[in-house]
Computed example of a mutant assay.
Amino acid sequence: MRNTARWAATIGLTATAVCGPLTGSALAAQAAPDSLYAPSALVLTLGHGESAAAAGPARAVTLTCAPGASGSHPAPALACAELRAAGGDFETLASGTGDVMCTRQYDPVVVTVDGVWQGKRVSYERTFANECMKNSSGSRLFAF
């Protein structure tokens, strides 16, 4: 009788040791998210006027940064890299100063950014005095 109990305990421990990790990994595989990256997908628009509501978009591009850079933006990889380096702060990118001299002509240009950045909903609007001022920020994000 002692051998039967010993064999039962041995078989039970062996089954637990062999099948336990398989069961745990199967459960972990079922609970795993679809992606390891938080979504980052943006729509950027450009319009002529003092506000997005008054201007209406003249151009629009898409930008997806996670898991890889893509979209209709002319330089998605550079724009995503700039945005990551700025910590997702659009104002920092729009306020940059380039070595460009612009006229004081007032012909307002408005850019908007709407979408999701690293899993968080974002909405941004900035009006520049003219197209040259927009381009003088030096940011590839707004160069479309």
Rank of each mutant, 00 (worst) to 15 (best):
N3K: 13
T112W: 02
S51G: 00
T92S: 15
E82Y: 07
P108R: 08
F142Y: 07
V113Y: 10
V61C: 09
A75R: 14
V18A: 11
C19D: 09
L27F: 12
L36A: 14
T92N: 10
A38F: 09
G56L: 07
M1H: 13
S40N: 04
G47M: 09
V100S: 08
A26F: 12
P57R: 10
F90E: 10
A75S: 14
R140N: 15
A15G: 11
G71H: 03
A55H: 00
H48W: 07
V43C: 06
H73N: 01
Q30F: 12
P21F: 03
T10H: 11
K134R: 15
S51L: 02
G56M: 09
R84H: 12
A15V: 15
R59Q: 13
R84L: 12
L78R: 10
A53T: 08
T10E: 06
S139L: 01
L22I: 11
R59V: 06
L27P: 05
A26Q: 12
C19A: 13
S136L: 02
C19N: 11
R140G: 13
L93E: 04
P33C: 05
P39Y: 04
V61H: 06
P76K: 04
L13Y: 10
T62P: 04
G119I: 03
V109I: 09
R126T: 07
R104E: 08
P74W: 02
V109E: 08
T14W: 06
P74H: 03
V100N: 01
D99Q: 08
G56K: 10
A81S: 07
A26I: 14
A79M: 00
T103M: 01
G47H: 07
A32H: 08
A8C: 07
E125M: 05
A55F: 04
L83D: 01
G88C: 04
G12F: 11
S72K: 05
A85T: 07
T4Q: 15
T92Q: 14
F142E: 09
A28G: 10
G115R: 05
G98F: 00
Y124M: 04
F142Q: 12
T10K: 11
R84V: 12
C80K: 06
L46F: 09
S139I: 01
L78F: 08
I11G: 10
S123M: 04
Y37W: 14
A41G: 09
A94K: 00
C132T: 07
A81R: 06
P33Y: 04
G49Y: 02
S40K: 03
G20D: 00
Y106C: 06
F128K: 00
T112F: 01
K120Q: 15
N135G: 11
T23Y: 12
S139G: 01
G12D: 12
L13S: 13
L78H: 06
A77Y: 01
